[in-house]
Amino acid sequence: MLDIFRGLKNLIKVSHIHIDSSIFRLHYSITVMILLAFSLIVTTRQYVGNPIDCIHTKDIPEDVLNTFCWIHSTYTIPSAFLKIVGEEVPYPGVDNSRTTSPSDRKYTKYYQWVCFCLFFQAILFYAPRWLWKSWEGGKIHALMMDLDVGICSEVEKKQKKKLLLDYLWDNLKNHNWWAYRYYLCELLALLNVVGQMFLMNKFFDGAFLTFGFDVIAFLDRDQEDRIDPMIFIFPRMTKCTFHKFGTSGEVERHDAVCILPLNVVNEKIYVFLWFWFLILGGLTALVVMYRCVVIVSPRMRVYLLRLRFRLIRGDVLDILVRKSKLGDWFLISMLGENVDSLIFRDVMHDLAAKLSAANSGVGLGGSLRGDPGQSGHLMHHHGSTIGRDPLDV
């Protein structure tokens, strides 16, 4: 099993360039790796053995009966789950078909499709990441210019900082659509998790949405009273009916009891996925709500920048938020996660100085990286006093 996960380790390699949030990365790295690993496990006989083994007679070859029951599905009798094993029925869900109504049969067909369904789910989880990567277009990587490593010559550092500053200045207020595309991808990730819960609920005939709660309730019941809810969805013993011509030319009916070792693995997989999707969906919903607050509240943007970038002065962050739009705030946040903190501080101070100078209509002789008192005096002198701005928090 470790070999399977070792082959998928490239999926969880986190790039040193961050273009999304950590919760968003859980969707396309950890979750995709888990789903692909599960898809491979259920197809490997090394861990499961034969997916189906049916008790056969000498009249029917073993391979023929197993293949027929695998292809045409098997069934259980729901009323037989409540009967006493060893007295009324031989196994939970297995009973005499002649004494029960044909409508009292639950056919188990999903097990043929589990590996394909898990693989399809992995593709759906990666889709928002693929979409955002194509829309992002390598912008963050291009703007970084290896400035994530602060050790370089002063000449090179100064030149790269100027290029980054010029880009931010020339393209100010032009990043809204770029940011909204990312927010759309996060929303798609949330819709994907919720949609997949309902997809699996349909896959298991409406029994999946409450599956985790049923398992928890089962663990809390007394040993004598409890019935394992997992055998309702993932029966280990089922029945299969095979018809053939006898020696006299008449149709003969053969009822076989089949063991499904694959369901022992399936039940563990889907118990884990139920809890994982619930946690992932909850975290993603919180992120989407956080994005909504950021969109409508400039004050929150200032607070978040102050919380994350403590090397940058508060008045500088006020100017950046007040003189820019949501898309610029998002780009600045992404750059702050990737660029060296000291270099990022210098660029933000210089950008705030240019914004203040442009607003006052004259050029500033120095940068906000200089003496805070002098910078504040200059901005006050030109009618741009920050302390009177309503966004100053």
Rank of each mutant, 00 (worst) to 15 (best):
R181A: 10
D166V: 00
K133E: 11
A122D: 09
G138E: 03
W178N: 03
D148E: 11
H175C: 01
R105D: 07
S134H: 07
M145H: 07
D170V: 03
M197F: 14
K106S: 10
L199K: 07
S101V: 11
F218W: 15
F211M: 09
Y126G: 03
N201K: 07
L191G: 07
N174L: 08
K106N: 13
D205F: 06
F120C: 08
Q112K: 15
V194R: 03
W178L: 04
Y180L: 12
Y110Q: 09
Y183F: 13
L209I: 13
R129S: 11
H175N: 15
G195P: 06
V194H: 02
M144T: 13
G150I: 05
W177F: 08
D214C: 06
S101F: 09
H141A: 15
I151A: 04
F204Y: 08
F116S: 06
F116N: 06
W130K: 10
A142E: 11
V155F: 06
E154I: 14
F120G: 14
F208K: 06
D166M: 02
V215P: 06
S153N: 10
K157V: 04
D170G: 04
N176M: 06
D146Y: 09
F125N: 05
H141K: 12
H175E: 11
Y167N: 09
D104T: 09
L163G: 12
F119V: 00
R105E: 12
G138T: 05
I216G: 02
T210C: 00
M200D: 08
L164F: 06
P102I: 14
E186A: 08
A127P: 00
N192I: 09
F204E: 03
F211S: 07
Q196P: 02
R181N: 10
I216F: 11
F119Q: 08
V215I: 15
L199V: 11
E186Q: 10
W135L: 10
M144C: 12
I151N: 05
C185H: 00
I151C: 08
A179W: 05
L163F: 07
A207N: 14
Y167K: 09
K202P: 00
D146Q: 10
L147W: 02
Y110R: 09
K157L: 13
L190A: 10
Y107Q: 09
L147P: 02
L163N: 12
W130V: 13
D170A: 14
L172K: 15
Y167H: 13
V114P: 07
L188Y: 03
F125Q: 08
A142V: 04
E136A: 03
P102L: 11
V155D: 08
M145C: 02
G137P: 07
Y167P: 04
K202D: 09
L184G: 05
N176A: 05
L190S: 01
F125A: 04
A217M: 08
L147E: 07
K173R: 14
T108H: 15
Y183A: 04
P102H: 10
N176G: 11
D166W: 02
D170E: 13
F119D: 04
Q121H: 05
I151V: 15
Q112E: 10
V114L: 10
A142C: 05
A122S: 15
K106Y: 11
N176W: 01
Y180G: 00
N192P: 01
V193H: 02
L172D: 01
L187D: 01
E154M: 13
P102T: 11
D205S: 11
E154Y: 09
V149S: 06
N192Q: 12
L188F: 12
G150Y: 05
Y182S: 00
V149N: 14
N201C: 08
Y111L: 11
L199M: 12
